[in-house]
């Protein structure tokens, strides 16, 4: 089946199977930042933005992407780079398998213009599991990033 979607600002025609999930399609088309960490929609590793909303691409049938705007972390290099500087500052970098998905959720939050507190940030990120960091350093980095970019 053919699916027309805008991926990272570029119009693409994707050839997909009816039962294929977007995580697999995107990897097939070399958007390799989109990775799979589970098979129960539990980990958040595969997060992408569909029309600016964070979505687990492992549960999103590729056919549904027709006419949609898809963003992977390759599509927000400046924001990802800035966020990574804050991760570097607070020592939030470990294996990084969770990082690209988090970057997209944080970008969506930033774009939404919603203010955050410690508590709302934790709840907002609850779909992103991280087995390495213990989360706190990530929270610190994300808060600094959001604070920075407000200015």
């Amino acid at each position: 089946m053919k699916v027309n979607a805008t991926i990272n600002g570029m119009k693409r025609v994707l050839d997909v199977q009816p039962d294929e999930y977007l995580v697999d399609t995107l990897r097939r088309y070399n958007y390799l930042s989109v990775r799979r960490g589970c098979d129960t929609t539990s980990c958040g590793v595969c997060t992408i933005l569909v029309d600016d909303q964070p979505v687990p691409s492992c549960a999103y049938l590729s056919v549904r992407a027709d006419g949609k705007t898809i963003t992977t972390v390759e599509g927000i290099p400046k924001h990802a780079e800035k966020l990574s500087e804050h991760f570097g500052e607070t020592g939030a970098d470990q294996c990084g398998f969770c990082n690209s998905g988090i970057a997209l959720s944080v970008y969506a939050l930033q774009k939404s213009g919603k203010g955050i507190t410690d508590e709302t940030l934790r709840h907002y990120l609850v779909g992103h599991l991280c087995r390495c960091t213990g989360y706190q350093a990530q929270h610190q980095a994300i808060k600094k990033y959001l604070g920075d970019s407000d200015e």
Partner: peptide
Amino acid sequence: PSIDGKGIMMG
């Protein structure tokens, strides 16, 4: 900062 964090975050 870790020497590889940027490239990893950028996917």
